[in-house]
Design a protein around this nucleic acid. Structure first.
Length: 432
RNA sequence: GUGGCUGUAGCUCAGUCGGUAGAGCCCUCGGUUGUGGUCCGAGUGGUCGCGGGUUCGAGUCCCGUCAGCCACCCCA
């Protein structure tokens, strides 16, 4: 055998068994989004590199050191999307959605790419589910987006979730705060950890997030962002909290919460779960009132969130949850010593029952009669057919002889279908 | 990017002091059973992540490398 080709680092195959839980996540999200009036959107997997530089910010880790950037054969610089908001905002303008009744509500589920050191819950290619609402600065939009996100988690039954909430203020407030923070921190510059020293110049707000003990001591005495919020910012944030409370959603206000992307303004939040370990963020979001304009569109306030599907699945698995496959309605097998006529008959029965919407498993493995019976049981089929050259017999669970089906295929199918209807209205007999 | 732990069958793992690889599950077949559960038996399946080194001999010891995991970092 030739050498096996390994998975690229930080990627994964999603096998049928994995898809069962993922489908549940996607179905749940779709239901929640549609109930709230969201339409689905997809954007390209790669964009012009400039989109992320301008939109997300060159000083951010995600764009500064984690992108997959390449030059294509036409000498264009392209980047695999590391997050969803920039692309959706671009599409909002390019697709003329800004001329539709505002706000426009969009949801997506798309792969994201970040060159990071892989760990559980941290992949180089991962899938993010998320939404963006563009065209309204009302606090009700922030609260609605958070409520949809919380609703998805609640429907899925995610354990131990905590919503951390903060307001980073409007652009003016942030500029003023940033200046004050730099002024406070500069005398301590040599005592800060290396990363924070660098950020003093590039992205001082992120220093608030540092876990370095000495940096934290210094940060403890720093001016706090809430003091710099404008009256409008404060009123907006209060309103968001009031609405969340009205929706029965608990939130912990965390004045040190700062998000890693440059475009956030005002409300920012993060859902964490103790089930996840170090990568504890299940999903996070925020308002980004300046982004669309920065990308060349009309001034458009907006809010959104993203949540990692793999991390949700990890939470569900921590609960010991496994999703079951749909039980098959009937199992069709061909008698081991039968010939082509029997296979043709079995194939007709199978395809025609499927036309009626039945889930039918045809024994393509050519199992023994006993093997067929075992397999039918494993698939939770309570009805089984054994087809030979002359006709077919139908067995119910525990049935010894089976009953002969009409040799006419259409009549046989009608009889099987009627039996399935009858079984559906009866309690399923338990295996003994 | 920094530090640490771990890589043996499709899965979960055992493998002693270095002596040419095992179990359970899964899958297929057979037996038992008023026949699809139970139980019993058989079979399929592995260059021990990969590459070097030490040795008469390496799954086992050493070095490198790749990958996963944990913490940092970052974040969903």
């Amino acid at each position: 055998m030739a050498d096996q080709i390994q998975l690229p680092r930080g990627t994964q195959d999603v096998l049928p068994a994995d898809w069962r839980l993922r489908f549940r996540v996607l179905d749940t999200a779709r239901r929640r989004f549609e109930a709230a009036g969201f339409g689905r959107i997809s954007t390209p997997t790669f964009e012009h590199t400039e989109l992320f530089h301008r939109g997300v910010g060159e000083a951010t880790d995600i764009v500064g050191k984690e992108t997959y950037t390449f030059t294509d054969r036409g000498d264009r610089s392209l980047t695999l999307r590391p997050e969803g908001t920039a692309g959706v905002s671009r599409a909002f303008v390019a697709g003329g959605l800004h001329r539709e009744p505002l706000p426009v509500k969009l949801w997506y589920s798309m792969a994201m790419f970040r060159y990071e050191k892989p760990q559980a819950g941290r992949l180089r290619e991962h899938e993010q589910l998320g939404c963006e609402v563009l065209g309204s600065e009302r606090a009700a939009v922030d609260a609605e987006v958070i409520a949809v996100q919380a609703g998805i988690y609640r429907d899925l039954g995610l354990p131990d979730l905590v919503l951390h909430l903060n307001s980073v203020g409007s652009t003016d407030a942030r500029t003023a705060y940033r200046a004050a923070l730099v002024e406070y921190l500069t005398p301590f510059a040599s005592e800060l950890d290396a990363d924070s020293q660098e950020r003093l110049a590039t992205n001082p707000l992120r220093i608030l997030d540092s876990k370095d003990p000495r940096t934290r001591e210094i940060v403890a005495g720093a001016p706090l962002l809430p003091a710099f919020l404008t009256d409008e910012d404060r009123a907006h944030f209060d309103r968001v909290q009031t609405l969340l409370a009205a929706a029965g959603i608990d939130a912990v206000v965390d004045p040190l919460l700062v998000r890693g992307l440059d475009y956030y303004t005002r409300t920012v939040w993060e859902f964490t779960s103790s089930a996840l370990g170090a990568q504890s963020t299940v999903g996070a979001g925020g308002r980004y009132d300046g982004l669309v304009e920065q990308l060349g569109g009309p001034a458009t306030p907006a809010v959104g969130f993203g949540t990692g599907i793999e991390r949700i699945v990890l939470c569900l698995e921590a609960l010991g949850q496994k999703s079951r496959t749909r039980p098959v309605d009937a199992y069709v097998g061909v008698a081991p010593d039968a010939g082509d006529a029997a296979w043709t008959r079995a194939f007709r029965i199978t395809t025609q029952l499927r036309e009626r919407g039945r889930a039918i498993e045809l024994d393509l493995a050519g199992r023994s009669a006993k093997g067929q019976a075992k397999q039918a049981s494993k698939l939770e089929s309570s009805l089984r057919m054994l087809v030979d050259d002359l006709g077919a017999r139908m067995f119910l669970r525990g049935d010894f002889d089976g009953s002969d089906l009409p040799s006419d295929v259409d009549a046989a199918i009608g009889q099987v279908d009627a039996q399935l209807v009858a079984l559906a209205t009866m309690p399923r007999p338990d295996a003994t």
